[in-house]
Amino acid sequence: MSQAATITRANERQEAESKTLFGFWVYLMTDCVLFASLFATFAVLRGNTFGGPTGDQLFSLPFVLIETLVLLTSSYTAGLGLLAARRRAKTQVLVFFGLTMLLGIFFLTMELTEFHKLYVEGDSWRRSGFLSAFFTLVGTHGLHITSGLIWMAVMLYKVAKGGLNHVNVKRLTMLSMFWHFLDIIWIFIFTIVYLVGVAG
């Protein structure tokens, strides 16, 4: 292959990669609108407790603060993982994203613990409009975290097997964009659902 052809192909690949990343940004914005709809719904239904418990009776701020810190840390390790991927440091990528995954699983476990506790105490999503909105908003975030974890597991396997080729680095970039996005959504959940919920 001539040098010119090699350059053309490299350009084509770069072009395609930037297109994919841009497309992924647009997807994240659509997801943002989805969450915005759920936030708006939550804001409307927040007071509709229908005689059931309110937010400040249900939420434990220290618990949620730990959840938040766990997720924020996972975002940090995901960032370190991506930097390592850019340096093509395979072991570090595996370590950092592995760590991110563990923190993600820990976060999800905490969230499910909270859900379970509410459920067994009779404060399930059937109880009131407020709780329906709460479970749906926080649960949708949890579902996103779950799909992020599945994606991360697939990526860890792929990197371990195939190394840090262009495709894998591109996908790790998108994965960490996704993960940071979920982090930002969580900040809003922490503020609007929990802090405002407890503060009244």
């Binding site: 989805l34 719904t41 239904l45 407790t49 229908f50 999503w125 059937r126 329906s132 909105a133």
Partner: peptide, 27 residues
């Protein structure tokens, strides 16, 4: 995305007994 969220909530109302848009239950 608004349609997706709205249909999702209606589906949750109908299948899981939530109260987004119901007449009672704080919907």
């Amino acid at each position: 995305p608004i349609l997706t969220a709205t249909l999702g909530m209606l589906a949750l109302d109908r299948t899981l007994g939530m109260h987004f848009f119901t007449a009672g239950g704080g919907g």
